[in-house]
Design a protein around this nucleic acid. Structure first.
Lengths: 163, 163
DNA sequence: CTAATATGAATGAAGG
DNA sequence: CCTTCATTCATATTAG
């Protein structure tokens, strides 16, 4: 009783492995979004594994799926932000170009945006349930940014050509 | 219109360099994969240049593109290998844990999933001048390279689990 | 049934 | 080498 894409069409014509893609369950989406909104927008590997384990209770899922989910989520958020920003900027520019009145300060920054998510960055502290809610292991989740590493970078010219 | 090539789209709005990324042609991919599968997983600069020259017959490409391609390819292969290893280990663990009634649910999946490419493992400093298959003369003609190649890119199999 | 959209997955390009 | 970002492809879902 699930909707696998296995049906789609009797295109069993050949060896068509058709990579069925993972469909996160509503509960899993809930968990993922909670984590994301809790500030963990880019979980390290160990964190990813933990999340996967958590999600597995609601349905099969792999680390890659979790990894991809966060990647896409981040990308999507950023792009939307940029689009909205660009749109706003464009609007402002238009207005400014059209009517150069005295709009000394354009305090059009963070307004009461009761939308989905416009507060990116990180921060949602424990105002709400910061800890996802399902916590099996007691580990201090610290956003370990920065990663030290150095290597002889091979410099290649940037003269590429794409057709 | 169009979708390939993307030869400098008309700057939509003002100064926008819009660096279109290189899209390797199928023939180029075949060549690259052949080289990679021949054991040259990390071509030195000289080799990279030669490869680029070869690829250029089928479309514009730069040394950097080739360099990136091999780098990504290596990384990708390693990841798949690790994933596969982990999966196998997990399976073994599960089997081995049949003694007990409960296993630790340690299904260790990994990132990019699935693929069957084994027999890799050496590389580091690949030997230059590896006889890939043919030694194309400078004659710009459609060489009959692609005639008998080993598993091109038929890697279509991925199973995570979506109920 | 076809078109548009949402979203998981793949890959080129960089950075550290 | 490793991780991350941006772009693109493919497919599931929904609207028309």
């Amino acid at each position: 009783m699930d909707q696998e894409g296995a049906s789609h069409s009797p295109s069993s014509t050949s060896t068509e492995p058709v990579r069925a893609r993972w469909s996160p369950k509503p509960e899993q989406i809930l968990i993922l979004e909670s984590i994301f909104n809790s500030g963990t927008v880019n979980p390290p590997k160990d964190e990813t594994v933990r999340i996967r384990k958590m999600l597995e209770k609601f349905g099969a899922v792999g680390d890659a799926n979790v990894f991809y989910w966060f990647q896409n989520r981040r990308s999507r958020s950023r792009r939307r932000q940029r689009q909205l920003q660009a749109a706003t900027a464009a609007a402002v520019t238009s207005i400014g170009a059209e009517d150069h009145q005295h709009m000394t300060a354009m305090s059009m920054h963070q307004y009461p945006c009761s939308n989905s998510e416009i507060g990116l960055g990180f921060g949602s502290y424990s105002n709400s349930s910061a800890s996802y809610f399902l916590n099996g292991s007691s580990s201090s989740q610290v956003p370990s940014f920065f990663l030290g590493l150095s290597s002889p970078s091979g410099e290649y010219e940037s003269n590429n050509g794409m057709e």
